[in-house]
């Protein structure tokens, strides 16, 4: 298993945010963490990225227990946060160089990887532009390119399409699916938009801090469209 979460629980004071959450994602799979707003997706991401420490349960990233060997786990993890984390005054390349250095990659190796990552995301010709001048879609692509610089085994994306127009959203979703099958990177993609999920994807349905369903999208939804299934599941338990 590339990403394994077992019996995870987390609460803010007396308010429970995650309750007994368990799931696993195999290597090279695209897993959609589907849940309405307030389902606990952001809390889960904060735990996965070690912004919070787990109160109960375990997280394993590429075989590294986050509690036992956090640095090894973080080295194998790529993250695209919901809010932009680009330095707007710096160029695309400077942003990526900074991040590469945080992972200990510098000099020519860094430049080579940056070129490759930007090329992949179709951003090569914008390397010298300032992040401030980029539109939302290009900013996102830059962040995805950045998250791939250190060859992570697991890529986390927290609602990466928020604020993007429909065509950009579709292109980005497709791109990450391709990335999954081409490079074997494991993806956990948090969203509340069902149209970003393909039938062959794994769906982890999170609602009110609990996993309601976990399985292949087509198997879960049956004959109904995913949107309907999603509404039914989250509405039924409301």
């Amino acid at each position: 298993m590339s990403l394994q979460v077992s019996d995870l629980a987390f609460s803010y004071g007396s308010k429970t945010a995650l309750d007994n959450v368990s799931f696993a994602v195999e290597r090279g799979r695209f897993a959609a963490l589907l849940g309405p707003n307030g389902a606990g997706k952001s809390t889960l991401f904060s735990l996965l990225t070690r912004l919070f420490v787990t109160q109960a349960g375990t997280i394993c990233i590429a075989g590294h227990d986050l509690k036992v060997s956090p640095l090894a786990a973080m080295a194998d993890l790529g993250v695209v946060f919901q809010q932009t984390t680009l330095d707007l005054d710096l160029t695309v390349r400077q942003n990526l160089r900074y991040f590469a250095a945080l992972h200990g990659i510098s000099g020519r190796v860094a430049d080579r990887r940056i070129d490759a990552a930007l090329e992949r995301l179709g951003m090569a010709e914008r390397a010298a532009e300032k992040a401030r001048g980029l539109n939302g879609g290009h900013r996102r692509r830059t962040e995805i390119a950045r998250a791939l610089l250190h060859d992570p085994k697991v890529l986390l994306l927290d609602e990466p399409t928020v604020g993007l127009d429909a065509p950009t959203r579709a292109a980005l979703t497709q791109h990450i699916h391709d990335l999954c099958s081409d490079t074997g990177v494991t993806v956990l993609w948090a969203t509340h938009l069902t149209d970003e999920v393909l039938d062959s994807d794994q769906v982890i349905l999170l609602h009110r801090g609990r996993v309601l369903a976990d399985g292949r999208c087509d198997a879960l939804r049956g004959a109904a469209p995913l949107t309907e299934y999603f509404a039914h599941m989250t509405g039924a338990s409301a």
Binding site: A72, M74, L77, V79, T84, T85, L102
Partner: peptide
């Protein structure tokens, strides 16, 4: 945001 990014460095 950039602090979050910084803190995810290994």
């Amino acid at each position: 945001g950039s602090m979050r990014l910084l803190l995810t460095a290994p």
